[in-house]
Design a protein around this nucleic acid. Sequence first.
DNA 1: CGACTTATTGAAAACTTTCAAGAGTCGTGG
DNA 2: CCACGACTCTTGAAAGTTTTCAATAAGTCG
Lengths: 218, 218
Amino acid sequence: MLQAEPAYLQAFVDRLASCCSLTETEQMAILGLPGRLVHATPNVDFIKAGEPADHACYVVDGLVARFGDNSSGRRVITALHIPGEVANLETVVLPYTKAGLQALAPTIILQIPQSALRTVAAAHPAVAKAFWKNCMTDAMILAQWIVNVGHRDAKCRIAHLICEMALRYRREQLSGKVIYSLPMSQAHLAAATGLTSVHVNRCLGSKPNQRLDVWQLS
Amino acid sequence: MLQAEPAYLQAFVDRLASCCSLTETEQMAILGLPGRLVHATPNVDFIKAGEPADHACYVVDGLVARFGDNSSGRRVITALHIPGEVANLETVVLPYTKAGLQALAPTIILQIPQSALRTVAAAHPAVAKAFWKNCMTDAMILAQWIVNVGHRDAKCRIAHLICEMALRYRREQLSGKVIYSLPMSQAHLAAATGLTSVHVNRCLGSKPNQRLDVWQLS
DNA sequence: CGACTTATTGAAAACTTTCAAGAGTCGTGG
DNA sequence: CCACGACTCTTGAAAGTTTTCAATAAGTCG
């Protein structure tokens, strides 16, 4: 397990630095984190619910979903993670997760050992604070998600999800327009919005040949 | 603003210590936090959405709800906080909250200045970690809440909320039975489950004189 | 008592799911 | 190159759930 060759983690550092000030040293400490690149197969959990995670999962490319489970066996998406995000940073303080992690499309993950993350956080209080803040930003997104899936009708849920993801992808874009790919099936969208895939399909008001997976907002 | 006379914060320390080891010194540092006791009027925001919070709100007695807002003006409960919890500990790293905080019943709040919390966290890394962990526990509850309001039918949502609160109150109880009071109106319950108050009423299968606010589970 | 909030009930309307079936897409192997 | 299987998307009709609207009872507090 060597240090990742290209600076995959630069996007993560940028994300942290955009809301916390980090010194050069602190940024280098994060960039120097060791990691192992793996491919995640779509629709197969690469982190299983209930098992301790010995590494955090940084999304290099693709799309990752966090799954919960309603009591009747249906799988529920509670969060999405796009490239540049760590899907389970909370495991640094909470090693046992009740949620599973799964790629929705072919995805590249950088596995970062917990031990390395803890070492960096302990050595650099500002980094620990940035991690904490990053986790809380994710938590605010969870709260927004509750409003979305619990208190809006079907069309608004879908529209809101698409717009939320637009905002999250925007940080990577230079121009005013946001063009992004959301490689989810309608069934995935249903699991993320608390609807059936049939109803998602109807709400999308689909005409033949309409595609879900590329969106452009101005 | 003197140090709170009785050890109101003992319950919070116990909560933190139950999942993180904290030394005597660290526990004393938390117990020694300054604070001001205030009464919160029910159904009036004591923390307003969008304003920076210069203090964290520790619930001494009563019940506090965190509110979001769906786009059509309906208020939505995204979290509940019972005595012994800090309702907005995340403001230590995220001073601007998009959520409002409101008491659902007559409630006593201990306002703890952010500056004091930051000082303690900076001086004691273990305390900072405990705070972080406590925040992430709340975030896991948010994820569970998504499953509940987004992916279950009405009866299950209500039942699940009542059971969840039972588990959270249980830590305060000595015996095997859990007896607790959940001082929410049916309209509050509706805002917490994503239903209408009319439907909550029907699901409770109410007969005359049935009371919502005291539950007993064995 | 009187004003206010909360709880209750019915009937119609709206929304969403379920079930079932058919069509389109994609990658694999014969 | 085409057939096949697996998965995704699409559509209709019936059934089920939840909301809306409206009105009445019950409870709380000054």
